Computed example of a mutant assay.
Amino acid sequence: MARYTGASCRLCRRENLKMYLKGDRCYSDKCAIERRPYPPGQHGQGRIKFSEYGVQLREKQKVKRMYGLLEAQFRLYYQRANAKKGKTGENLLQALELRLDNVAFRMGFADTRSEARQLVRHAHFRVNGKKVNIPSYQVRVGDKISVKERSKKVVSIAEALEAVDRRGFPAWVDVDKKGFEGTVKALPAREDLTLPIQEQLIVELYSK
């Protein structure tokens, strides 16, 4: 399956937003968007004026890249969110937040979502004691996510847990750092998403 394999920092610069795709590097003076706060490419420093469609497209691309999804995957999430009761935009963000790879990232078991996705695929986590190696697995309220006993010695997981205090935990998870486990205690609320996301623009784009 096709997946973007280029430089992550180019994505942040393209969206003009620090999306923390590189973990520790994003908090250092090496962060590309701090050093070159303009879009990549030959004409990156030129004046850019977006149409209404362009603004909506950039918002969709930003969220899609933030969670590391392809277009077909993202559209499927939108269709499911649109079929549910409530606000489509909030339903969409809630479903994205409850992906297993994102929950592992939010609990501090990985520095980035892409790293969490790889750890999930390699079966380093257990959900309610059972092996789950599907990054898109939808976690539910009350589910316990734990690191496999042998995987507690994995250096990247231990280092991520040590550094997670800088990022903090969202209110909807409860994490036991010493036990290498966490519980989803509530559904993610809209205010828990600290990055600037205008989900209504995505709804408007797909509604056309």
Rank of each mutant, 00 (worst) to 15 (best):
C9Q: 04
S136D: 09
V132L: 00
K208E: 12
Y77C: 05
Q73D: 06
T88Q: 06
G68D: 04
V175M: 10
L70N: 07
R99V: 03
N82C: 15
S156I: 06
E191G: 13
R13C: 07
N82G: 10
V173N: 09
R99A: 04
Y38M: 13
I145G: 07
R25I: 15
K22E: 15
P188A: 07
R166M: 12
I145Q: 05
L100W: 00
F180P: 05
K152F: 04
G182C: 10
G23N: 09
P37G: 02
Q200D: 13
Y137T: 03
D143Q: 10
P39N: 10
Y67C: 06
A160F: 04
L187A: 13
K178T: 12
E15H: 11
D101S: 01
V155K: 13
K177A: 14
A171E: 15
Y38L: 13
K148E: 11
R14S: 14
K60S: 12
G41E: 11
N16T: 08
F74S: 06
Y38D: 12
V154L: 14
H122P: 08
D174R: 15
K22R: 15
S51W: 10
R25A: 15
D101A: 01
A116L: 05
E34F: 13
Y20I: 02
G129N: 05
R166H: 11
G89R: 07
A163F: 06
L76T: 13
L187P: 08
R140M: 09
L92F: 09
Q138Y: 03
A32R: 12
T194I: 02
R65V: 00
D101F: 00
M19W: 01
K64A: 08
E149Q: 12
G86A: 12
T183K: 14
G182F: 08
G182P: 10
K64L: 13
C9Y: 02
